[in-house]
Design a protein around this nucleic acid. Sequence first.
DNA 1: TTAATATATGAACAAATGTTCAAATGAAGA
DNA 2: TCTTCATTTGAACATTTGTTCATATATTAA
Lengths: 114, 114
Amino acid sequence: MDNCSIKCINEEKVKQTAETLPPTEDIGRMADIFKALGDPSRLKIVLALLNQEHCVCDIAAVCNQTDSAVSHQLRVLRTLKIVKNRRDGKIMYYSIDDDHVSALIRMSLDHVRH
Amino acid sequence: MDNCSIKCINEEKVKQTAETLPPTEDIGRMADIFKALGDPSRLKIVLALLNQEHCVCDIAAVCNQTDSAVSHQLRVLRTLKIVKNRRDGKIMYYSIDDDHVSALIRMSLDHVRH
DNA sequence: TTAATATATGAACAAATGTTCAAATGAAGA
DNA sequence: TCTTCATTTGAACATTTGTTCATATATTAA
């Protein structure tokens, strides 16, 4: 239960900060992107594609995952426009869809290695 | 089951990309950061703190969450060095710990608004 | 058409996650 | 000391999530 009495709230600061928040919809979309990159196996796929485009089969080999698992993850990434694909005969090639993605990854690498 | 025969794998490409991958430990840490930002309520807290430091109570007010829920989320963010805190009497003030965080947020906003 | 191959999909399951509620700290003032 | 208040913590719960397995689709070649 919310046991913080009215007094402890600095209404002015609360109001001011509330005004700086992006629309709820944007927050949701940002969270979706972060969430997608927040799974190690999915992040590994993205990192692999950051190097060059690959077919599903090769991604699975690079990442030590089954084709099926990779395919499922790629669908998530595709839905969020993090990766895109092109078909060449039987083979489907995947690659990074957006420049922001590589920038995001670079930032987080910097953070990790402080 | 992995039903992709050996033939479909481009060994050279696989090997080459595998060499570009960061160490597993780094991938895990990056994923942790993304995962932390991947929950809307937690992301909202971070966005609020990006504006200015706040006490737990005020964060709860800004984000329409209970104090308890906010406190739980702040612990996660603190553990990952995304936020830091300082005590002033009974009140605990939280703020963003790292510059990389704001950069990450900005990138994802750009991505969302393409 | 039929067979073979690369990828996609659906259902089921275990594991992880966020929220809630109740209770416990820790700090300040009476 | 005792009380009050801001925050933290722990356990329980429902929900979400990633993986697996079996099956389906789509493309090519025979």
